[in-house]
Simulated assay, not measured.
Amino acid sequence: MLQHALRTLDEISSLGAPRTALSFNGLLSALNHSLLPFSPRRVPELFSDLSRRLSIVPDKVSYGILVKSHRLAGNARKALGVLKEMEERKIEITTVIYTTLVDSFYKEGRPEEAERLWKEMEKKGCKPDLPAYNVRIMHRALKGEPQDVLDSIREIEAAGLKPDTITYNYLISCYRSHGRFQEAKKVYKELEEKGGVPNAATFRNLLASLCKNEDFDGALEVFTDSVKQSKVPDLGSVKLLFEGLMKNSKVRAAKMVISGLKKKFPEDLSGDWKKLEKVVGVNVDGEGPEQIVAAWIQK
């Protein structure tokens, strides 16, 4: 409903409220968050047009939204021009803006440019915060070795910051991608001791990896933890666990997976989730575990 939003912005003054950068930022930020694919591409055009036509003076938040729109559109180069404009207008370039740009260049496969900006950020007195370090760790987890991620965690701690769940998720992910599942499970088990709390991504990614590695006992433990914390992984991950347990004749454990879900989330088990419940329910006619496994494998 962009046209309605634009009309409201135009009418704010007549409604008895001042038209400020706050309203301007709200409109542009909504475009960045829109599910419509081309919405972020409208931000630069509206930024220029509205600020001029409505005499709105953009602030550092406005420019942060503009930089993010370029990132979402995959135009990190254009975002560099925004930094230059901010410097000319003597508007503070925040750590958030630098982090957005660093993230952009990493995702565009240009780590050298990302590192150059990181050094520029530090040189200009913008102290990297934990989200900034996590962006860096994300790249190292995807492209590097577990030791690279561990070195980054030490950098975080040396900066007086505390790694969080996102940080350790990247370490777990890096261990998994290198086939080092025991180390991944160790980080997971020690997460709460380190001050983190497993989130949905922790459970989903580790569960899927352990199942693909045919460590169904480890996967079942992760799944049980997720249910206890009301953060059940996605259907695909649970289905991998269920199929693995069934094919390895661990029918009772497979049934416990579905019954546990049904007990914990009775209102949410619908659609494809119901199909899994139906499979474990075929025992009503007295069929034994072998028949249940055979029926599942044939599906």
Rank of each mutant, 00 (worst) to 15 (best):
L2M: 11
F242P: 02
G260H: 03
R71G: 13
T165C: 04
F203V: 14
L220V: 01
K84E: 11
V187A: 11
L240E: 08
N199T: 04
L261A: 07
Q3C: 15
V135T: 06
L54I: 10
V187S: 01
L9R: 04
R252K: 15
P289V: 09
L66C: 09
L207Y: 12
I258Q: 00
A30F: 07
V238M: 01
R71K: 09
Y98V: 13
E155G: 14
F203W: 10
P131R: 09
Q3K: 14
L206H: 02
R116M: 09
G271T: 08
A184M: 05
S152C: 08
L36G: 13
V187C: 08
K274F: 03
A201L: 12
E243K: 13
K68C: 04
E108W: 05
S230E: 08
G26S: 09
F105M: 13
R110Q: 12
F24E: 09
H4R: 03
G288C: 10
A201F: 14
S249A: 14
K194L: 14
L240P: 13
I297V: 15
V282L: 11
R71C: 10
G144W: 05
D148A: 08
F38I: 12
M121T: 06
P44S: 04
L46T: 10
M86L: 03
L22W: 15
R176I: 15
A159C: 15
K127G: 08
R180C: 05
S51V: 13
K68A: 01
L191F: 02
N169I: 01
R89T: 10
C211P: 04
S270W: 06
G16V: 05
N169T: 11
S259H: 04
G286V: 05
T20G: 13
K231A: 04
L101Y: 14
G160P: 03
K107Q: 14
W118L: 09
A79V: 00
E193M: 15
P266S: 13
L50V: 14
L245W: 05
A208Y: 03
E290R: 02
G109N: 07
E243I: 10
A17E: 00
L54W: 07
E45P: 06
V82I: 08
K228I: 00
L28Q: 07
P40I: 00
P40N: 04
Y133A: 07
L261K: 01
F47E: 01
K68D: 14
S23D: 15
E192N: 07
Y106E: 04
S34R: 04
D234T: 04
P18I: 02
E122Q: 15
E85W: 08
L50N: 03
E120R: 07
T99D: 09
L150E: 07
G16Y: 05
A295V: 06
K84T: 11
V96T: 12
G160R: 06
F181C: 07
G195P: 12
G26I: 05
H178W: 02
G16P: 08
E115C: 00
K127R: 12
I56P: 02
R53T: 14
Q298G: 08
W118C: 04
I156M: 12
P40W: 02
A159T: 14
D234V: 11
M86T: 06
G286A: 07
G179T: 06
K90G: 11
G271Q: 05
